[in-house]
């Protein structure tokens, strides 16, 4: 199975230095877990973040240089030599940062897409088994027809960084002729340095609570149970259970 990992020219949001986003490192980990040939693909000139990403387990990254719409350029490259699996992070860091590229690519290639993938299982008859990570540690099994695009969950296991691998990685420049396509629909607006805005403060239900002073332990336990049940944190009692 041949996998391709889409890499962006990432910027670390805290330091502003080039660094691959967590989701893309997780995508490399998922690609390595499948086995077979794994390559990197980047729309644009070679940037230092690509070498860092390659240090997590890629031997070669193809950089499609020549301008034009990233979706069109990537779709053309993937159409010319179709891999079995395309992996991407949740969203890039350093550009538009909308997380739309894999979706537009899937729409253009007419491939299925799943996002939030934490693990990849076995392939059977053209179907790939994957696990999707949801909030609160919940998981959802899914199967997807190959070839497909998978967006890695940020929390998927990341492979370790190896400095030697980063040094030896080959960043191959592939000249492409840019084609202006109807890829990303641009949003006009004014751009300026980021200003951190505080989040809304939640309404803490402080004070005014019930206070029970020095009750009997059995009484305290009963009050606690009834209170938790009223809050919906405890399942209602079974039918016919003895209630004190």
């Amino acid at each position: 199975m041949r996998s391709v990992v889409l890499l962006s020219g990432g910027i670390d949001p805290v330091s502003g230095r080039p660094a691959p986003p967590a989701g893309e490192i997780a995508a490399i980990g998922l690609a390595l877990s499948v086995g077979g040939a794994v390559g990197g693909l980047h729309a644009g000139a070679p940037v230092p973040a690509l070498r860092q990403a390659a240090g997590h387990g890629l031997e070669q990254v193809d950089c499609l240089q020549g301008g034009g719409d990233a979706v069109a350029v990537l779709a053309e490259a993937l159409f010319a030599a179709p891999p079995d699996l395309v992996l991407a992070g949740r969203q890039a860091r350093g550009g538009e940062d909308s997380g739309m590229l894999p979706y537009l690519l899937a729409e253009r290639l007419d491939w299925p897409l799943l996002s939030g993938v934490v693990a990849i299982g076995a392939t059977a008859e053209g179907w790939l088994a994957v696990t999707i990570g949801l909030a609160q540690g919940a998981r959802r099994p899914a199967q997807i027809r190959l070839p497909c695009i998978l967006c890695a969950h940020d929390a998927a296991p990341a492979p370790p960084f190896v400095f030697d691998r980063a040094r030896r990685a080959v960043l191959r420049v592939v000249p492409v002729t840019g084609e202006e396509g109807p890829g990303m629909v641009a949003v006009e607006g004014t751009e300026r340095p980021y200003r951190a805005r505080p989040r809304l403060i939640g309404t803490a239900s402080g004070g005014g609570g019930t206070v029970l002073e020095h009750p009997d332990p059995a009484e305290a336990a009963r009050v606690l149970r009834d209170h938790l049940r009223a809050l919906g944190m405890l399942a209602p009692p079974r039918e016919g259970a003895a209630d004190a």
Binding site: S205, G209, T210, V211, L212, E213, H214, P215, P217, A218, A220, A221, R222, V223, L224, R225, H227, P237, R238, A241, A242, D243, A244
Partner: peptide, 22 residues
């Protein structure tokens, strides 16, 4: 919202017994 002024070491086993009984 609800405070019980008692020893946690005494309330925990009582709550455990109550829930096991159910």
């Amino acid at each position: 919202g609800l405070s019980i002024i008692a020893d946690a070491q005494a309330v925990m086993p009582a709550l455990l017994d109550l829930l096991r009984e159910e």
